[in-house]
Amino acid sequence: MRPISYSRVSDVGTAIGTVAADPTSAFLAGGTNQVDLLRIYVEQPRRLVDINDLPLKQVEELPGGGLRLGGLARMSDVAEHPTVRRRYPMVSESLVLGASPQLRHMASVAGNLMQRTRCTYFRDTEVACNKRSPGTGCSAMEGVNRGHAVLGTSECCIATHPSDLGVALMALDAVVQTESPAGQRSIPIDDFYLLPGKTPEREHPLSHGELVTGIDLPPLPVAAHSRYIKIRDRESYEFALAAVAVAMSVVDGRITEIRLALGGVATKPWRARAAEAALDGAPATTDSFTRAAEAELATAVPHGMNAFKIELAKRTIVRALTEMTQREGSA
């Protein structure tokens, strides 16, 4: 490991100031992704600024009925929070289905949104990767890419965004609160994640040293009827092959409100707007669900080993909507 300096800060101003002033520095939250990448030389900060003492761990009500998750709130604390579970079950479920209990106790929600892709070529400094070393090429395009994305890809990068939480937040139109020396910003979650395009190395619109202070969940009654389903090879401790976050309300057999996002299949947490458009006002039937799933995946691009994800994503959407409808029906 390269020599690294470490400091622990206790106020937001110092944290931002220290990192913003030094381009070779980085925030250290739970470290579950940062330290990993540092050990394999994918990230090479010279200075780590430990932000775990910042007073950003609370979950609090917002005026107007929303909820703010502190950026440093632990995944496990948010997952178990009674208000989160009652008003935003999909958020709680997306967290519980991620990583392992040990990791969830360490990891912060901001860190979860900021985590890097699990593309194995990204993690191997010896091979070409446009995200890690811009311009070198993409080894995954024709490589071992079973886990890679079929939506939102570009000719430069097909890496899946790994966050489960991000998918639930995408469905909810959450807002990311940040602070930097230039001041505070509110970034709608959809804008917080960038598509790879020609610059896969750029994943967020944040400036260096800009801190995620919190995540705002909007007041959204439909979110109380939501769920997160995650399909993977093993029952726990694995990233999604396909995941669906859905919130839905059905009145007299018709869908009156629908929020749908996909995980595990796209280069960013993926709001399924085409599917939503197809579902809005449609009868809550398998037919509608299938049509919506087809619409959403119409633009999907397979790359060899991951071709199955297109069908898997469609079926997972249908499954999630069917289960929601059954639940709604019986509620």
Binding site: T120, Y121, R234, S236
Partner: peptide, 25 residues
């Protein structure tokens, strides 16, 4: 274990990528 024949190297040499059963399985 998945071989990348272009590189002649394994593409998933970690316990996050080489899956073994966990308790939940």
């Amino acid at each position: 274990t998945r071989m990348d024949p272009r590189l002649g190297r394994w593409a998933n040499s970690s316990l996050a990528d080489y899956l073994v059963p966990v308790n939940a399985d």
